[in-house]
Each structure stands twice: as C-alpha cells, then as structure tokens.
C-alpha cells in the first residue's frame, strides 16, 4: 500500500515536470487541422522556409531565424544585437534542446514576434519545429 502511493507520487512528479514534446506536437496538429481542414501533417520543407526566409523584424532590420541561430544549426549562434553566444539549436548537437515544452513555447512566441512581428500559427510552429528538430 505505502509503496503504491509512493510510485503514484513519483509518477505524477515526473509527468508534471517532463511536459512532453510529443503531446505538444499533437496539440499543434489538432489546432492546425481545426484552422485548415485540408491540413496534411507538418512539413520539414515548409519549416525550412520559415527558418531561412527574411523579414523586416521588430527592430526594423531585415532578419531571419538564422540571423542569430546561424545557417548551421549544429553550430553556436550569436545574438544579433547583444552579441551573446547562443548554444546550438539542433538537438543532435545540443541534447537539451526541445526537452521542455514551456521553454519551446516561450521562444516560439518571442522569436516569431522578433522576426515576423506576429505570433506563429499552429501550422507554422509545427512546421518550423519539425525542421529544427530534424536538421543536423
């Protein structure tokens, strides 16, 4: 009896702390399908375009995701304005990446606003995540 309660406690702690990326991706998928009934899954190539395409960003400068995160996702990046080093974006080079949903959501919100001056749609977020998580 006492052990089962303990396991339950440990299990609950793990689930709440983990916040799992697969669950987040399927939430985005549902949202994308709701917005567009013809939606047919996230695409690497669309994500690649979102990552590399240039836009006049929040600061008035022409920027893309790669301005700070570089074109090589396995290399360290550099903050375009402050110069602070940014650890590699690719999970192949930096296993910490995409392990916390809260962090992923925060940076998608912040960086879409920085580059696109608006939040990303569910489909855009899923596409660019698909690209970033697979690209070496």
């Amino acid at each position: 009896m006492k052990y089962s309660a303990l396991y339950l406690l440990v299990g609950m702690t793990l689930v709440s702390a983990g916040g799992n990326m697969d669950a987040y991706m399927s939430t985005l998928e549902k949202e994308a399908r709701l917005a567009d009934p013809g939606f047919n899954g996230f695409e690497y190539s669309r994500g690649e375009k979102i990552y590399f395409s240039k836009h006049r960003g929040k600061r008035g400068k022409i920027v893309s995701c790669s301005s700070c995160h570089t074109e090589n996702l396995s290399a360290s990046g550099k903050h375009l304005f402050t110069g602070k080093v940014i650890k590699p974006l690719s999970p192949f080079a930096n296993p910490q990446r995409f392990s916390k949903v809260k962090k992923v959501k925060k940076w998608l919100r912040r960086n879409f606003k920085d580059v696109y001056k608006r939040e990303g749609t569910a489909q855009e977020k899923g596409d660019v995540l698909t690209f970033m998580m697979r690209r070496k």
Binding site: R109, R110, K113, D114
Partner: peptide, 10 residues
C-alpha cells in the same frame, strides 16, 4: 518591446 525584442514570459 524590450529594447526592440520580445521578452514576454509566463
């Protein structure tokens, strides 16, 4: 708009 960047948080 934190010095030109979005720095919003939870």
């Amino acid at each position: 708009n934190h010095f030109g960047a979005d720095a919003t948080m939870d």
